[in-house]
Structure formats: C-alpha cells, structure tokens
C-alpha cells in the first residue's frame, strides 16, 4: 500500500513485536501475557491508571527491564540477553524519558552528537552538522552551546527528542514525556511529537494527555493491572470503550 516498489517488505515485519511477555516484581505480576505489534510508521499510545505497568512495558521494549518470559523483537530480530549485541539493537530504538535525562556535564550539542559519534562511529563534523539541523527542527538550536541545567524543561525534553532522532532509530519510545513539565511547556513538546508522527516516525507513547492521544494515535492500548484490556482506534476507544475498567478510567480523568 505505502511502498509500491516493495510491497511484501512493508507488509511483513513489524518494527516492534512482543509475544507472551510476562514480568513480575516479586509477587507483583506487572506484565501479564503482553502481546503487541507495532508496524512501521505507526503511532501507538498506551494509557491506563497509575501502576498499571505502562512504564514497565515501555522499558521492556528496549530491555531496560528484563522479562521473565516471552519474546521481544525489533524489526524481526529477537532482543539479545546481554552485552554488545544488545547494545546494538538498543541503538535502533530511541527512548525519551519523563525526566529528560540529558547528560548534565555535556553541552546541548554534545548531548545530541555523543550517540552518533561514539556508538555509530560517525565523523564528528558530520554528526555536528546533523545535530544542529535536528536542534533547529525541535527549535532549540540557539541553545546548542549551553548545558542542560540552563534550559527550561520543555527545551530539555526537545533536546532529548533530538538526541533520540540523531540515532536514526527505527522507533522511539516515550514514557510520559510531558508529565514533568509546567503546563505552559507541554504544548511545545507535544507539537514536536505531532510533527514527528506526521513525518512517519514509528512511536510508542505513554501519556496522560488524552487530547493529544486522540489526535496522533493510530491505535490506543489500554492497560490495567499488567494486562492489555483494550486495543482500538482512538475514535472507537474514546467514544465506545468496551470494558468497564476503561469506562471508569475515562470517567475519572474527565472529572479531573
């Protein structure tokens, strides 16, 4: 459909596949038989009550959390357990955190170039030029020589997105990227993400911003108590939630 020259390839391998993934934190069954598949260019938004396992799910996708059982594949390749090979696969999946997690001792520019230079072995000059373009794209190129602490939260999060983009990832995972931001800065980050989605980036997003979810998601995943309870288009999910849990959840945030 999308790619006329090579229709079989686009149809075939999803970028992210999770099969029967299980995880416990001690007694707590934090992920319960999770099955998920994200196609190239797809935007999947995960929502659900606090403690339902959204962050854990997001983090298992690039193995920041290990799993007890099940299979996780990135572009058809199973996530290795350890070591260099795991690092190589991780480099293909970007991650944007709630707390930005920029490298505090590095300039904004160096935050963006360190991955390409040190992991992808790109020439420095090329990495810098591309980083400046990316910083421009997210609107913080003026701050390139500063360090993270000199930037606002919204600016820092946009740098974090540029840092992820600089790796040319096959997908980017976002774990509540706007939850640590002052309300007036949420919009600038969501705008950048909306543009990314429109440019065809494959994205998995955990968020509490329902309007945004409705607007950018191709698919909504609703989680509760470690399980995926619903998987639907935003339109269907927000207007006709099938489970009682989802209805309760939507009501609880409406009354907020």
């Amino acid at each position: 459909m999308a790619n006329k020259e090579n229709p079989t390839e686009t149809a075939a391998t999803p970028i992210i596949t999770l099969r029967h993934v299980d995880k416990h934190f001690g007694q707590l069954h934090v992920l319960n038989d999770i099955n998920l598949s994200v196609k190239k260019g797809e935007v999947v938004v995960i929502i659900g009550p606090s403690g339902s396992g959204k962050s854990t799910l997001c983090r298992t996708i690039n193995r920041l959390e290990t799993v007890d059982a099940g299979e996780i594949m990135i572009d058809g390749v199973a996530m290795p357990q350890e070591g260099r090979h795991l690092a190589e696969i991780r480099a293909q999946v970007g991650m944007v955190f709630q707390a930005f997690n920029l490298f505090a001792h590095k300039t904004i520019l160096d935050n963006v170039t360190i991955g390409p230079i040190d992991v992808l072995h790109k020439p420095k000059k090329e990495a810098r030029e591309e980083a400046m373009q990316l910083l421009k794209r997210v609107g913080v190129d003026q701050q390139a020589a500063k360090v993270p602490a000199q930037l606002s939260g919204g600016q820092q999060q946009r740098v974090a997105i540029a840092r992820a983009l600089a790796m040319h990832p096959k997908a980017i995972l976002f774990d509540e990227p706007t939850s640590a931001l002052d309300p007036e800065m949420i919009g600038e980050v969501l705008d950048v993400m909306t543009k990314l989605a429109a440019d065809g980036m494959t994205m998995v997003i955990v968020t509490h911003e329902m309007n945004f979810a409705r607007q950018v998601a191709d698919r909504i995943i609703f989680m509760d108590a470690g399980s995926i309870l619903e998987e639907n288009t935003p339109e269907q999910f927000f207007t006709h939630p099938r489970t009682q849990r989802a209805q309760d959840f939507l009501n609880s945030i409406k009354n907020h």
Binding site: R84, A99, I114
Partner: peptide
C-alpha cells in the same frame, strides 16, 4: 550524585558498559 536516569539514557543510546563509564 549521577542520576540513574542518565545511565538509562546512555544505555538506550546503545552504549556498552565501558562507553557509559567513559562518556557519562
């Protein structure tokens, strides 16, 4: 004093143990 978050960010960029030590 280095937050665990920075280490996780480095790991998700695909840095190995020694690269994280060296860079972060």
């Amino acid at each position: 004093t280095i937050g665990a978050g920075q280490i996780e960010a480095a790991r998700s960029l695909g840095m190995t143990f020694f690269k994280i030590i060296k860079n972060v």
